[in-house]
Design a protein around this nucleic acid. Structure first.
Lengths: 200, 200
DNA sequence: ACATTTATTAACCATTTGGTTAAACTATTT
DNA sequence: AAATAGTTTAACCAAATGGTTAATAAATGT
């Protein structure tokens, strides 16, 4: 661990606390403790809890969006996109286990303010992907399918295990080791499942 | 709306508030307001916020568990189970949109106390389903597959859209009407996808 | 009708929590 | 070295929040 500026330490601590506990459950004092600074510093650098939360939300969204954009805006084939997204997304989330849940939860709670992000530069835009699907159908590479349903399947299969970890592990009675090895297996299983279902 | 006992009104209001805002975000005063009673009544009938929350959690779990148990413990074939679960679960969640998210969120936050439920009578137990899969593989009805991965696929495909509604709708740019009609479509698409992937 | 238990309320209380302030301490500039 | 600007802290504050209490009202039993 390198020494960092106080402001960076605060954001780091805020990310950790907000992602685990959410806006409502997070405590400014806990963030200060984790950053090992006086609580007043939080307000010195970030004005209010809301502002600090927004900085954390933005950071999370910016880390997450590129994975979606890789699917939406790259020049790969649909098959390649499915394979590569699954692999890179599962790896990414295993390193950032609280991130998808955090995004989902806070977007559900603050639809009004998260709209800002969906209108922004960085926000994923599915238009190009839709065209690609239409083309590959035309070319006879894949069956006629609804691109939105395909994306929903892809996101569901990759993300749900992590968002609902506790429930999933409870229902299927999985220890952590088994869960992790299943997630590795899914890097293969998911593309197989999806590609088989759409290839002609 | 029928007249109900105060205790029932409180639980109903608590369900509504807790499921939307979670334990941390819920306010006792808001629950009292929604139940149109004095805040002291909450403690008169339910002792503390924690106890009231537990009643809400239990109710949610008891409403949710039968859907899983229908898959785990009925005498249907695997194909029938997939088809019927998808249909009934999507219908159920469209009527109770906050429930899956609430369960997931609170189980992630309180792993220790939600363990109580996974050890209980009502809790789903995958053992019988595992046997059934082994049998149907033996009988040559389905390909050799890991029952846990099949269940994970089924739960992911059905539940994720609802758990991550806000994020999904933001990324895919869906209005409410489109979202709902896609969910209806999924009652057909999901069984098709899963059954095709396992049938011999 | 009276007594007793049950239900309900308004007012209150202690703690928690986000946020402020004034003073001190540490660079940086001149 | 003095002045200035930036950083950090302890102490404090007001509002929100979960919870209690004592008095009252309504129902129930005798």
């Amino acid at each position: 661990m390198k020494d960092q500026s106080t402001e960076e330490n605060i954001l780091k601590a805020a990310i950790s606390v907000f992602q685990k506990k959410g806006m409502a459950g997070a405590r400014m004092q806990e963030i200060a403790d984790e950053a090992k600074i006086n609580k007043a510093m939080l307000h010195y650098y970030y004005k209010s809890k809301q502002k600090l939360f927004e900085a954390v939300f933005r950071q999370a969204f910016e880390k997450f969006a590129p994975h979606i954009n890789q699917v939406f805006n790259s020049d790969k084939t649909v098959f390649e996109k499915i394979t590569e997204f699954t692999d890179s997304y599962i790896s990414f989330v295993m390193e950032n286990p609280y991130l998808p849940n955090f995004l989902i939860q806070e977007i559900n709670n603050n639809p009004e303010f998260s709209d800002l992000f969906f209108g922004s530069e960085i926000a994923p835009n599915p238009a190009r992907f839709k065209k690609q699907i239409a083309q590959e159908i035309e070319m006879g590479i894949i069956k006629p399918i609804d691109p939105k349903q395909l994306l929903l399947n892809l996101f569901s299969l990759t993300a749900f295990s992590f968002v609902g970890t506790g429930l999933v592990r409870g229902i299927l009675d999985l220890d952590e080791k088994t869960f992790k090895s299943m997630m590795q297996e899914r890097k293969i299983l998911i593309p197989e499942l999806l590609i088989n279902s759409i290839k002609k």
